[in-house]
């Protein structure tokens, strides 16, 4: 923490039930090395207890505190105030895009979680399967086998940033497609390739790669979608020549 104090304005999206969205302004003195989530929590604690938002772990593991900060999807618990504004500046806080708003900064992610379960990817996997193929693997003892948690923290930032998800509610979205790719790499289950081989699946992606830009957890959904396309095309070519 620094000894500086900044005076900034939080512009927070407020929306209850079927009401239209409004922005409420909160001027605050903050330490610029605090995180955006700290500011939001202080608004809730000392200024307005009716503000609703999601958070849990405070260290980018749970993926609950994803929001749109000054137009960009961020995990607010690891986004320093200094990185998104300056002294005297404004932080505009909005709920994730492309999800229905339940209340204020909370969005309804039920369909997202349901689809993730359908992707059937193992949350814990051998290191080789959990890592991206071009990623440097950190293994203490190469003669032993290790497992680790896979990278996706199910925050939904990629879906919020995706231009295809912006206009189609049936499009599965980057996190789901990346999970399907990971599930396929783990299980070689052909049902997963059939599931995503559609316009609402991997072919709905328009290659803007915003998902990979905003992902806070090294999942590279854009690369995984393209890899899944490659797998599907390879299977089609093989089946055209009568090979399985």
């Amino acid at each position: 923490m620094s000894n500086e104090t900044w005076k900034i304005t939080f512009l927070v999206s407020r929306q209850k039930a079927q009401e239209s969205r409004q922005f409420q302004s909160f001027e605050m003195d903050v330490d610029p090395d605090e995180y955006v989530l700290d500011g939001i929590e202080r608004i809730w604690a000392f200024r307005d207890r009716s503000l609703t938002y999601r958070h849990a772990c405070h260290h980018s593991t749970c993926g609950a505190c994803g929001m749109v900060i000054n137009g960009v999807e961020k995990l607010t618990c690891i986004t320093p105030i200094r990185s998104v504004t300056s002294n005297g500046g404004t932080i505009k806080v909005e709920p994730l895009r492309n999800f229905p708003v339940t209340s204020d900064l909370v969005v309804d992610m039920r369909q997202f979680y349901t689809h993730l379960e359908e992707a059937r990817f193992g949350q814990v996997a051998p290191v080789e399967e959990a890592c991206l193929p071009f990623e440097k693997q950190q293994i203490a003892d190469p003669s032993s086998t290790y497992e680790r948690l896979v990278d996706c923290i199910e925050c939904g930032l990629c879906i919020s940033a995706c231009p295809s998800a912006l206009t189609s509610s049936s499009y599965l979205g980057p996190a789901i497609l990346a999970a399907a790719q990971q599930g396929y790499m783990q299980s070689k289950d052909l049902q997963l390739t059939h599931w995503v081989d559609s316009h609402d699946g991997v072919w709905g992606c328009h290659s803007a790669f915003e998902c990979s830009e905003v992902c806070p957890s090294n999942v590279e959904p854009g690369w995984r979608i393209m890899d899944m396309r490659k797998i599907i095309i390879a299977r089609r070519v093989r089946s055209f020549f009568g090979r399985t």
Partner: peptide, 14 residues
């Protein structure tokens, strides 16, 4: 609620 996906949001592509 204007947040869920909708074809009417296409202008935001630009």
């Amino acid at each position: 609620m204007t947040n869920p996906p909708s074809p009417s949001h296409f202008w935001r592509w630009f």
